[in-house]
């Protein structure tokens, strides 16, 4: 068997990227970002607020964390619900105690099902980022463009109705987009997405959409659930990241530390103490700025 001759032809081998989504730039060569008031590292707490139907969908793919056993999977359905009943309130209390605000990447189903939770999030001064409809609302190429547009507007409309404000930000489930997603988000009035992990500062797509990179490796899901490390190991890695970024900021300008967390993972009784201690330690750094995704994007846009 031999390969088709076209397999060793490279029509997109050229200067810059092999796509038209965004242009290249090296972070250390950009004009330094100034977060103001001597702040070196913007810490972006981003909580995934998910609702997993007990009837999972595999189109276009099954979301991470979804049902695993034959129907009915009480085990995973209820263990995920633990996050929106208990875990998220531990996090809300921890944020209040530390005096910080966060972004909540929220399935719109949560706004419809649990309005009191969304009201508590808004009352705490936190930001709502649209995170699809529910955990069956995954996106990937192959999905009909109209269906994707409807999914995006359903999510935004429901969250706007529940909170009184249309979310500025969008986070796809598992950060998965189709070729259509960036344009559909702009058409739906979204200002920024959180899906592309190729940078550590906001940058702009060619269509005007801003990408606010939400590090997928420095997350409780990756470190605790996938790599099966302890909450202490998660906290240690996060501290190491902060220390490095603060050092780098002294030379290259403001940096950002995204902390992507999940109520049903980090909000468990035996893990939350490690998280609260981490939050307290970071809060004590005088060069840290705890900010929501929207605040970071706004500050980045206002750079001279």
């Amino acid at each position: 068997m031999t390969l088709d001759a076209s397999y060793t032809e490279y029509p997109k081998r050229r200067h810059g990227y092999d796509h038209e989504l965004y242009t290249w730039s090296a972070m250390h060569e950009r004009k330094p970002v100034d977060w103001g008031a001597g702040r070196k590292v913007a810490i972006w707490l981003c909580v995934s607020l998910e609702w997993f139907p007990i009837t999972p969908s595999d189109t276009p793919f099954r979301a991470p964390g979804h049902m695993q056993t034959a129907y009915p999977d009480y085990r995973h359905y209820t263990a995920r619900e633990y996050g929106t009943r208990i875990g998220v309130y531990r996090l809300l209390d921890a944020f209040t105690k530390a005096g910080v605000t966060a972004s909540f990447a929220t399935n719109s189903a949560n706004a419809e099902r649990y309005p009191e939770l969304v009201a508590d999030i808004i009352a705490g001064g936190h930001e709502i980022i649209a995170h699809s409809t529910d955990m069956n609302g995954t996106i990937a190429s192959g999905m009909a463009e109209g269906a994707e547009a409807a999914l995006i507007s359903t999510s935004l409309d429901a969250l706007e109705k529940a909170t009184g404000a249309r979310p500025q930000g969008w986070a796809s489930i598992a950060r998965s987009q189709s070729w259509h997603t960036p344009d559909l988000l702009v058409e739906a009035g979204v200002k920024y997405c959180c899906d592309w992990v190729n940078d550590e500062l906001p940058y702009r797509f060619n269509n005007g959409l801003i990408n606010l990179p939400l590090n997928h490796e420095l997350s409780d899901r990756q470190i605790i659930t996938v790599q099966q490390k302890s909450a202490d190991s998660y906290a240690e890695s996060t501290r190491d990241a902060y220390d490095w970024l603060a050092k780098e900021a002294a030379q290259f300008g403001g940096r950002m530390l995204p902390m992507h967390i999940t109520p049903y993972i980090i909000g468990l009784p035996y893990r939350i103490d490690a998280f609260e201690k981490l939050l307290g330690d970071l809060r004590a750094r005088d060069d840290a700025w705890f900010a929501t995704g929207g605040e970071i994007v706004d500050a980045w846009e206002k750079q001279p």
Binding site: A26, A140, S176, S178, W179, D195, W196, V197, N198, H216
Partner: peptide, 23 residues
């Protein structure tokens, strides 16, 4: 692993060429 674009797969590797190579 995913239909193209595999956003996490592609953009994770792109991090090298925008940010982490120089680090």
């Amino acid at each position: 692993a995913k239909p193209h674009p595999d956003v996490v797969g592609y953009s994770h590797r792109d991090h090298s060429n925008r940010v982490s190579h120089w680090r």
